[in-house]
Computed example of a mutant assay.
Amino acid sequence: MPEITPAPCAPEDVRRVACIGAGVIGGGWVAHFLARGYDVTAWDPAADAEDRLRRLVAAAWPALEQIGLADGAAPDRLTIAPTLAEAVADADFVQESAPEKLELKRSLLAELAAATRPGVVIASSTSGYPMTDMQEGAENAVRLVVGHPFNPPYLIPLVEVVGGERTDPEAVAWSSRFYEVAGKSVITMDRELPGFIANRLQEALWREALHMVANGEATVEDIDASITEGPGLRWAFMGPCLTFALAGGEGGMAHMLDHFGPSLKSPWTRLEAPELDRALRDAMIDGCREAAGDRTYADLVAARDQGVIDVLRATGRLGRTRR
């Protein structure tokens, strides 16, 4: 594999970030980078993209002010470029957040690799595609990496970083360091895994939730409450593995496995996804509508953002990132 062209600057010296795609995830990245004091150039082909993006940043800014802005951070450091090429022309880092369609990702990443200055790393926000699959057809694919965030990127610290078969390891290392400097909590994966780490765990819970709704075993409200009032409280500061280790008392994980191991054979979970037929789709939509009540989308976003801030503050992690 050819080595990556040396990056134009060190991760600590990045000044301008280009965000390609300005939907929920791309817009969340824009808000995050602005709050960290970067100049941000955004591009999205949708006719109403600029209006939607500026509304998203304005809605996110009160939460970002609570957690603390970098010196010089301001929404007016956002520029909307008329073309993709102009968006990346002077970027020190590129974050791609296009819709989750493989052929679209391939063509867009190939276009970005051709338009971006040599050595500038291009990261994809993909939630499941391996970079190896997305690199096909791209020239200079050595600087293409996955930088998978969690929604909303301006509040949830986690980003999972991994390269593809054609990615230079130096690009992965550079990206991980940049995200750390930009205030993220980084997991640098040493191999590709469909869905990465966090999404695979989240997907297992999601599939079981769909099964319970499809079979009439629990309502949407029951399922959400079972997490927010139960294990979710522990997961906010301790992952499932250490949580289960504590269930083993002083004997730790060894005792827990010896004691509860046989239950792994019990029919508690069904990891195969259920058929998403009309009835299940309607049940999920109606259940979420009932759970939301008279709260608007903006109301729910504000409640979610405040909840994340409260948990981060309560667990001593506000402003702290994982190293």
Rank of each mutant, 00 (worst) to 15 (best):
M189H: 05
R317S: 10
P149C: 11
L312A: 05
G307D: 10
I80N: 02
G232W: 12
C9I: 14
S124V: 08
T228C: 06
A98Y: 10
P45I: 15
S124E: 03
F196C: 07
R77K: 15
G23Q: 14
P99T: 09
R234Y: 15
A110V: 06
T188M: 06
R52C: 12
F93W: 04
D305V: 03
V161C: 04
L242K: 07
D305W: 03
L276W: 13
E180L: 13
D282C: 05
F237D: 01
G72C: 11
P2A: 14
E275V: 15
L242T: 13
A31L: 09
T132V: 11
E12N: 04
A236P: 05
R54A: 10
D277M: 03
R166E: 11
L34N: 00
L53C: 06
L144H: 02
D286L: 10
R289A: 15
A22M: 11
G21Q: 01
A138I: 01
V181D: 02
L155P: 00
E111F: 04
G28A: 11
S127P: 13
G163I: 00
P6E: 08
P45F: 15
E100T: 14
V159M: 10
V40D: 00
E111V: 02
M134N: 01
A114I: 12
Q306T: 09
P152S: 10
D258K: 11
A247D: 15
A49F: 09
E160P: 05
E290L: 14
W61D: 06
P6K: 10
G195P: 10
H259G: 10
H259A: 13
A49G: 06
L201Q: 06
D282Q: 12
A114E: 14
Y154N: 04
G251R: 12
Q202N: 13
V146F: 04
A49Y: 11
P240C: 11
G23C: 08
A81E: 02
R304G: 05
P194C: 07
L205K: 04
L257E: 12
R289F: 11
D282E: 15
A171C: 09
D48L: 10
T83C: 14
E136P: 03
R106A: 09
P8H: 07
A225Q: 05
D39S: 09
D90N: 14
I187L: 13
